[in-house]
């Protein structure tokens, strides 16, 4: 026969255990939420590493973290000066894979490039000139906009010049 007192002790112990488990779970959940998205109080936001759309990066993550800038710079010289257009380390290749699925860009608060560069406090100036969106998407989004705001006759195009050429014996107006 189990005495009433004994039963109470067991129940208390179990309740205590349950409470402890809940507390632990709660703490864990809070911690993981913090790590994922928000800023721990007074700290810089951690970079967001969203899933890239490709299968596999051209090099492993540790290499890319340290050397992506060197590879990009090397590739930019090859492309700009010699016209070599391989895709392995092209900026377009990075953008095609790493553009955010929501914003379709590598910029923005959760953008692949910008979130990490803000965390590391390194200025990111590629995108002052380069498009931050994958090729097809940019074409689609900019096409209607540009055709809509383009006047039928462009003011700069209709300006015609009078040029004198020695060969025709023309006289400057």
């Amino acid at each position: 026969m189990v005495s009433l007192a004994k039963l109470r002790v067991v129940l208390n112990w179990q309740r205590g255990g349950l409470l402890a488990a809940l507390l632990a779970l709660g703490a864990f959940a809070t911690a993981s939420v913090n790590a994922h998205e928000s800023t721990p109080a007074g700290r810089v936001a951690l970079p967001v590493h969203a899933e890239a759309s490709g299968d596999k990066c051209v090099r492993d993550t540790s290499y890319m973290k340290r050397h992506h800038m060197d590879e990009l710079k090397h590739h930019r010289k090859e492309t700009m000066r010699k016209g070599i257009r391989t895709t392995e380390f092209s900026l377009q290749g990075c953008i095609n894979c790493h553009a955010d699925k929501k914003t379709n860009s590598v910029l923005g608060k959760e953008g692949f490039c910008q979130s990490c560069h803000s965390y590391a406090a390194v200025k990111l100036d590629c995108f002052e000139c380069h498009a931050s969106k994958p090729k097809a998407a940019t074409a689609l989004s900019s096409m209607p906009a540009s055709s809509a705001d383009t006047p039928a006759i462009m003011p700069q195009q209709v300006q015609a010049e009078s040029v004198d050429l020695n060969s025709t014996g023309g006289v400057r107006k």
Partner: peptide, 12 residues
């Protein structure tokens, strides 16, 4: 402006 149209005229 990377390309523009030019009209040339021999006035004579």
């Amino acid at each position: 402006q990377w390309i523009r149209k030019v009209e040339i005229k021999d006035l004579r």
